[in-house]
């Protein structure tokens, strides 16, 4: 029941944030504008002008989305009301992802007014955090699935229970 509450609660939080965003007035070139010189390109214009009033809501949107993703994973992995020990690794992975998410936001907030940008592996700081930091840590969830499959997803007892159920079904239909 607690997992269902977390799942529905985080879904409603995402819904609330999206409704708030839909009601928030757009400033500047929110979705970009045509490039002044090249018609096949768009340009973003001023980051602070278009994101000033939605940066915190965007931060909340990303946070609520990440919590909802993890709630979905936990909901799919649970057996009855139990996560069989998966809860802590999932929560720890979520915390790491949220840390990188906040780092990305802070880094972007510092550069969106035209602040100095440092490069890392060919990308400016905030984009580097997104591609080389945030993305790789989200792979933790895939690794949890692979590493803990026999412990958290399908144990030997689960499989034996399944085989018994299938055998019973076949017996009944024979």
């Amino acid at each position: 029941m607690r997992l269902l509450t977390l799942l529905v609660g985080s879904l409603l939080l995402v819904v609330a944030v999206v409704i708030a965003l839909l009601l928030t007035p757009e400033l500047g070139d929110v979705g970009g504008k045509p490039h002044e010189q090249f018609s096949t390109m768009a340009s973003g214009g001023s980051g602070s002008a278009r994101h000033a009033n939605v940066l915190w809501l965007g931060g909340l949107f990303g946070t609520a989305s990440l919590v909802f993703f993890v709630a979905l994973m936990a909901f799919g992995a649970r057996k009855g009301a139990s996560l069989r020990g998966l809860g802590r690794p999932l929560a720890a992975s979520l915390v790491v992802c949220l840390a990188f998410w906040v780092w990305l936001l802070v880094s972007y907030a510092h550069t969106m007014d035209g602040g100095a940008v440092s490069f890392f592996l060919a990308l400016p700081g905030p984009s580097a955090i997104m591609l080389y930091g945030f993305f790789p840590v989200t792979i933790l969830f895939n690794l949890l699935y692979v590493i803990g499959f026999n412990r958290w997803i399908l144990t030997e007892e689960d499989y034996q229970e399944y085989k018994r159920l299938v055998a019973e079904r076949r017996g009944r239909s024979a």
Binding site: H35, A42, S46, V54, Y108, M112
Partner: peptide
Amino acid sequence: DDAEAAGPWGTLGMI
């Protein structure tokens, strides 16, 4: 040319 294009949200914007 355009700092936002190389930034994490590109020209489409954060949301």
